[in-house]
Write a protein that binds this DNA or RNA. Sequence first.
DNA 1: ATTCTTTAGTCAATCGGTTTACTACCGGTC
DNA 2: GACCGGTAGTAAACCGATTGACTAAAGAAT
Lengths: 353, 353
Amino acid sequence: MARIKIADVAREALVSATTVSLILNGRNTDRFPESTRLRVHRVAQELGYEPNVLARGLRTQRTHTIGLISDRIATTPYAVRMVEAAQDVAREHGRLLFLVNTGGDAEVERDAVRALLAQQVDGLVYACMWHRPVDPPEGLPTGTVFLDCFPREGGFPSVVPDDREGARTAVDLLVRTGHRRIAFVDIGEEPVPLASGLRHAGYLEVLRTAGITPDPAWHVHAKAATAADARVAVDSLLALPAHRRPTALFCFNDRIAAGAYASARHHGVRIPQDLSVVGYDDQQLIATELDPPLTTVALPHYEMGRWATEVLLGVRTPPDTGEGILRMPCPLVERESVCPPSASPGQPADDGQ
Amino acid sequence: MARIKIADVAREALVSATTVSLILNGRNTDRFPESTRLRVHRVAQELGYEPNVLARGLRTQRTHTIGLISDRIATTPYAVRMVEAAQDVAREHGRLLFLVNTGGDAEVERDAVRALLAQQVDGLVYACMWHRPVDPPEGLPTGTVFLDCFPREGGFPSVVPDDREGARTAVDLLVRTGHRRIAFVDIGEEPVPLASGLRHAGYLEVLRTAGITPDPAWHVHAKAATAADARVAVDSLLALPAHRRPTALFCFNDRIAAGAYASARHHGVRIPQDLSVVGYDDQQLIATELDPPLTTVALPHYEMGRWATEVLLGVRTPPDTGEGILRMPCPLVERESVCPPSASPGQPADDGQ
DNA sequence: ATTCTTTAGTCAATCGGTTTACTACCGGTC
DNA sequence: GACCGGTAGTAAACCGATTGACTAAAGAAT
């Protein structure tokens, strides 16, 4: 019942371990006649030989394993598709994936890096749950790839979502649909300042291009990114006098949008007839389950995860721009929460000035 | 820049590699005087020595790694907390976790088992996204633990949610709150026949105990477990004549419940005043974001993941019942979607007969 | 007959630790 | 002077593969 080792195969095939190794790895195969090759392969098969990858890795200094260090992506539903992508790429290339969640604790993070390097992993992906700059732990090997975050000091290839462009896409849809009074339902201070700023910037750019001067009252903040807090924020928008009340909402994310739905419902405001809503993230379980289904901007988690892992494995080359950060496009996912503004409340085409 | 190895420490500390190994591993330490111990520790520290775990594992035949094989749990938001638990337990015990998602493909699964065994993992957890019997791949080492599923042929410790008891808890809450007309919004044929059957059984048991004869029209099926399909099913319940119309819904899961909310809204039926709703799963992102927040039965994903991994590591003993399956309780999570039935529609306390 | 090539392999070192079995030295005892 | 026990280590085998250097035997060329 003990594991079959190369010596067992060698003995059974009446050759040396060297020969077995060379043949099974397809090296210098022309050195051996067909008969020997077939015999070795057959015996290995019959005995169910599987090389011990520890021994191999010790000798070759390559383990065909990679490490994925993240704060919490594997333990929360948000960004789980990044793990899926890393896993898929690893498998496609015959690699095995070590997964470590640190919970964001710096000491755990250092331990994780140490443990993974002690395992002689061939490479590391350092991932975050949301787009932000990070101060990575010391000792990261060169070649480490950053996923959904980037090292403040630079120096490593990184991939993040293009939040500003995504916001532009969302708000542009609303403008093209005929809306002029468009609010941005932001989140409070923490915890996503970078994404929040970028999405807000994109929002403002589109309004400016469209010649719309935003009413300051249209920028509201949910205390936290929960539906309950968002509802409070949106309540204040719907309480605005008719001519200032927005006809469309660009929400920082889908949970905020869920809160907007709740607020609208309690004000007797119909979505999308009376209020169009666009979210961000395309969060499974929210965007599609809302009623009506939510038009939103998708975070390209899978694509980012794939890119990062492929760069790590060297099957794709990182951008050679100075900063080495790839901004991945965020595609618009149109569902049913957007329609032209009804002509009724407020003036028909008021604030063009 | 090359990695520091034990020989480097030995040379620097003026002892042999044997001594370094013995001291750093705390074995036979009384053999060495304090001075030597301190010197070795200091040199190791200064040089930043980290043992190569491949080499160690090769010799000791223990790698301190475990493998988690799953169909899709790490790539979908549903059961991600099982991964979190496995990860936590692994870390608590100084283990590293290999994660492999097979997508449910039997061949990929076999490859995964082979690859993980080739890595000399110390143990394997075999997990599924939802509670069901499985035909596990051949070659699973003894000691493998099954998580959220169990091998049809038995023979391995397993942990699954106690769906029947969970359903009882849910329906019992409704009965205790005063409901007598309680519907079960089930899912269609696939893909969760086991859980569906168990939850239905629990539902029937409570009704029987309460002396309620269920109206056959109260058992409806959503074609698939999506909100849209569930809405159709619930529409048919709400179209029932008032004296047969249920005052409460027990939904197979939270997505079904989300569909029930949509249906209710479109019928002008208020939750919970006109219709109480209980879900199942306590799915993050749904249960709390619904309006009103959903009362539901939680799937103990974290607890199950922890149990499985702890059994694997031998820090907890599996049940010695014949089948070796632990049924983990599913706690009720009370939120705001349940209240006593309003006395208005139907008769006040009609069908006690 | 000798030398050279080619064929078909093998030997032994190596990767970096762990572990078993051994030893050199010292002071004290008989 | 032989023996003993304790102290403070070390040498070498070992885990299971890979790999650079080498070789025995057969056949071809000179």
